[in-house]
């Protein structure tokens, strides 16, 4: 009894990455929520904050318009929203059976993970580009120019890793779309407000300054803002040995990489457990 099996799997790692990347990219292009609607809240923040607080805030800032000051925070917010969507995508996959379908296919599991992540990175870059352009239209200035804009997108990608990992852990732990959405979104606003995102920390109460020191968002925002202004903007850690904006960038990137590794390991552990143990 012979059945032809000429199609026996011969896929490569790169092909598996590409296959997964294509699926997720089609999904995010097709689903208006993912690409556009998720930008609505950050854009509302950008427009309203600059209009409402612009006058007051600009006087509190030294020689910087509030638009320029705020845009780095908004791109970080965009990265946060995008990172939350990652977990939502995973929980959808679990719910509609695609997670299991992938596991039962001969695709390399690491490649599948890389492919999905790559699709998210591309999306974050696209969204950050949209928001940066809008910011420039509204009057924000990127002191470091086009190179700076690229660097800001890069920082947003790096920054998104810890929250992406967090939302993915929520997804495999709750296995429920609503819980993941609520869990991931619940934290966003409070975390943004108790950081250096919207106002200089010096202008905020001491307890917020303390919390902000331990808030990952502070490091993401300080890094993007340092590039935006081309100067040292970090107030939570005092580093002086690198000079200029690098006094902010180096410590911020160290912190963000550390966070990415820590949260990333937990997520990889949680996802591979979900993949190998009880799949029910």
């Amino acid at each position: 009894m012979s059945v032809q099996t000429d199609d026996r799997y011969g896929g490569s790692f790169a092909r598996d990455v590409w296959t997964t990347f294509v699926r997720w990219t089609i999904k995010s292009v097709r689903n208006p929520f993912v690409l556009v609607v998720s930008l609505v809240q950050p854009i509302i923040f950008l427009v309203l904050f600059t209009q409402v607080f612009g006058g007051v805030a600009t006087s509190a800032l030294e020689g910087v318009t509030y638009e320029t000051y705020l845009v780095p925070a908004i791109v970080i917010q965009v990265a946060l929203v995008a990172a939350a969507t990652s977990g939502i995508g995973l929980v959808n996959d679990i719910e509609n059976g695609m997670f299991e379908k992938t596991l039962v296919s001969p695709m390399n599991r690491v490649a599948v993970f890389v492919g999905k992540t790559l699709a998210e990175v591309v999306r974050i870059i696209a969204q950050v580009t949209i928001v940066l352009s809008l910011g420039v239209v509204l009057g924000a200035e990127i002191a470091t120019g086009l190179t700076g804009a690229v660097a800001i997108a890069g920082i947003c990608v790096l920054f998104s890793v810890w929250f992406t990992a967090f939302s993915n852990v929520l997804a495999v732990v709750t296995r429920d779309e609503e819980s993941t959405i609520i869990g991931a979104n619940l934290l966003q606003l409070p975390l943004l407000f108790v950081s250096s995102a919207f106002l200089p920390l010096a202008a905020l109460p001491t307890w917020i300054q303390t919390v902000a020191t331990f808030n990952p968002i502070t490091y993401g925002v300080d890094a993007t803002r340092a590039v935006m202004l081309g100067e040292d903007t970090m107030t939570v850690i005092d580093v002086t040995r690198f000079g200029g904006m690098w006094d902010t960038l180096v410590p911020a990137i160290v912190v963000l990489v550390g966070l990415a590794l820590a949260f990333g390991s937990v997520a990889i552990y949680a996802i591979s457990r979900a993949a190998s143990a009880d799949v029910q």
Binding site: Y9, G11, R15, V22, M107
Partner: peptide, 9 residues
């Protein structure tokens, strides 16, 4: 997607 996942040429 299924074809690609299973390496169909």
């Amino acid at each position: 997607f299924a074809c690609d996942a299973y390496g169909v040429s």
